[in-house]
């Protein structure tokens, strides 16, 4: 769920655009560096972006009876890091605005900040901490993906709460509305990616080697 066009007052829209800009610029510098070092990575990066976009079109069953779709930022964070994820999120959000009329132009900065910066940043920190602590891959994947989704929606609720009403009451109300669909969705997405990484490790271990180095304990 993104902040729809027209939902943020212009001051907040500008603020979130300025807040997201340095992260996107940093991500872009990383992408530029990758492309300069190895131009062959261009197609690989583009296909990864396309994969995230197509994946976000999969409708998953939700506990509330509705259907939702994964964001893919948790996966992207584990495989490519926060910088690349922020740029990919911007591209996916532009596509969603232009192909599905989801989100909007004036709320683009706010949406990039929640989906491409805050969520992936917290998820990346958790992922690195768990890797250092030697947490098993399935648990690590589930928590990373779940956190990426949850922090995204908490940030969206904060953005709306800052714009409307007394902050604490407003935040609680927005969180309560989002929680109905987003907590089940976060769990479903976490399980989905845990199975995904498990299958991928078995089918193409060379692709997962960098993000999930195999340990003797895991092998056992």
């Amino acid at each position: 769920m993104h902040v729809m066009e027209g939902f943020l007052p212009w001051e907040w829209a500008l603020f979130w655009t300025l807040a997201a800009a340095p992260f996107v610029a940093y991500g872009f510098l990383i992408i530029r560096r990758i492309l300069r070092e190895d131009p062959n990575q261009r197609t690989m990066l583009a296909l990864s972006g396309a994969f995230i976009f197509v994946m976000s079109s999969f409708k998953l069953p939700s506990v509330t009876g509705s259907s939702s779709h994964p964001t893919g930022t948790g996966f992207s964070t584990m495989f490519f890091g926060v910088g690349v994820t922020s740029v990919m999120s911007l591209i996916v959000l532009i596509f969603q605005a232009l192909l599905l009329a989801h989100g909007g132009f004036t709320t683009m900065g706010a949406n990039v900040f929640s989906m491409g910066v805050a969520g992936p940043f917290v998820a990346y920190l958790a992922f690195k901490t768990m890797t250092k602590a030697g947490v098993r891959t399935p648990i690590k994947v589930f928590i990373t993906v779940f956190l990426a989704g949850m922090v995204t929606y908490i940030t969206t609720a904060v953005q709306l709460a800052l714009a409307y009403g007394p902050f604490a009451d407003s935040l609680l109300s927005f969180l309560a509305v989002f929680a109905v669909t987003q907590i089940p969705l976060g769990i479903v997405e976490g399980i989905l990616f845990t199975i995904f990484v498990d299958y991928l490790e078995r089918a193409r271990p060379d692709l997962t080697e960098k993000a999930f180095p195999r340990r003797v304990k895991d092998e056992a």
């Binding site: 197609t43 690989m44 296909l47 994946m55 995904f196």
Partner: peptide
């Protein structure tokens, strides 16, 4: 069923991911 749906989606995603990587190599 829900769990079957999840497994199928995960398998589809892996299939798509691997094929997309192979396509990227050929396309390059």
């Amino acid at each position: 069923g829900r769990m079957n749906t999840m497994r199928t989606y995960a398998k589809m995603m892996v299939g798509m991911f691997i094929r997309s990587m192979e396509t990227a190599e050929r396309s390059n």
